[in-house]
Amino acid sequence: MACKNPTEASPPLDRAILSLPAGIKTGRILPSDELSPVVEHFWWVHWDTEEEQTSEVLSYPSIHVVFEKQEATVVGIVRKKFIRRLHGCGEVFGIKFRPAMFRQFDSTPAHKITDRTFPLDNSVWDRGVIGKILNSPSMTEKAYHAEMALHVPAQATDPQAIHIRDLVEHIRHNPEIRSVSDLTMRAGLTERSLQRLFRDYLGVPPKWVIRRFRLQEASECLAKGEGTIASVAAELGYFDQAHFARDFKSVVGLAPRHFLDKLQAKR
């Protein structure tokens, strides 16, 4: 079946983005239906700013392939808040793989990539294709070449990878999942087996994934003014604000009150 051209998309601001300063633009391009089970979207960032700006992202549990200047790299899951300081003019193009689905293209256990960046392996990715992506003048052309390169290997299926992908999506869309024990019945696995598969295919444990999604929800609610710190903490199942504040700070980098103060100062 012939590949369809990727489609431009203009979704709402991703809850993973904690701050997007002036002079920085970002967008997404959706893959074809055939590729969408493996790739969530292609993405791009462009900046043109005289003053140094800081972009902060609370990453989803996904591995990315990133193309910038003349380099192509694999970026593992970033467990802490990702901070990038931008100055001058530049752009980045990336591929966001669905959770666990990078395993379709690279057999390296995912935990060996977590919090690390590696050059894209030329034995897996054709150097000519990498060159086309790096040198294409538009983001839609970059996405087209990436789509063509990924289409055939994406047809291979790994049942374990698909199972972990679907479990992560279940956590993402079901706020009532608050503990690993909540997930084991859905997974049909023992907790030990679940931990092992998450380590090998995703790169982080299920507890980390659950907490990351729930705290992303918390930061979004607070940023939109959809509740107080106390009500958001209670909604997420925290029995006391102190525990919530510790978890929030460990992930976002700021206590909830300071997070709100920083948002208020920017308005």
Rank of each mutant, 00 (worst) to 15 (best):
H173P: 02
I162E: 04
I229Y: 10
I164K: 00
P205G: 07
R186Q: 12
A223H: 10
S231K: 13
L167W: 02
I210Y: 00
A187P: 08
V168C: 05
A218Y: 05
E220L: 15
R192N: 03
N174W: 07
L189E: 01
P205E: 06
K224W: 09
I210H: 01
H170G: 07
G225H: 13
I229R: 09
C221T: 06
W208D: 06
C221W: 14
E226Y: 13
D166Y: 07
T184N: 07
G227Q: 10
A187M: 07
R192D: 07
W208F: 15
R186N: 08
T190Q: 00
S179E: 06
P205T: 05
A187W: 01
F239L: 13
K207T: 00
L194F: 00
F239N: 13
I177T: 06
L189P: 00
R212K: 12
C221G: 08
L202Q: 02
L215Q: 07
R196D: 01
E169Q: 03
R192T: 09
K207P: 00
W208K: 06
I162D: 00
N174E: 10
L197A: 04
R165C: 05
I177N: 02
N174Y: 10
I177W: 04
I229S: 09
S231G: 14
L215C: 06
R178A: 04
Q216N: 14
A218T: 08
A223E: 15
P205W: 01
G203A: 10
E176V: 12
F213N: 03
I164R: 01
T184E: 08
I177G: 03
G227C: 14
T228P: 03
D182H: 14
C221F: 14
E220V: 10
L222S: 12
A218I: 08
R165Y: 03
R178S: 01
H163Y: 04
A218W: 04
F213C: 07
E235R: 15
M185R: 08
A230C: 11
H163T: 02
Y201P: 00
K224H: 13
L183D: 01
P205A: 05
H170P: 01
I210P: 03
